[in-house]
Amino acid sequence: MGEIKAVVTMHKQQVGGGAPIFVADNVKQMEETAFLLEKLLDAAVHDLKNGTFILVKHK
């Protein structure tokens, strides 16, 4: 079972809930934040295709 460790988004109003949310202004910034978080959290970045990335820790 995967677990959402963090959310990186450009649209703050679209997300909410338990995981920490990181807001980015543009795609480049979002990519960079997600990249860093991937290394830090050891969680995979998945693209929800709506301007939001989620970091999921699998198993």
């Binding site: 990249f35 991937e38 970045v45 998945h46 693209d47 990335f53």
Partner: peptide, 8 residues
Amino acid sequence: MNVGLKVN
């Protein structure tokens, strides 16, 4: 699977 990062 779904790979989010451009680098990957």
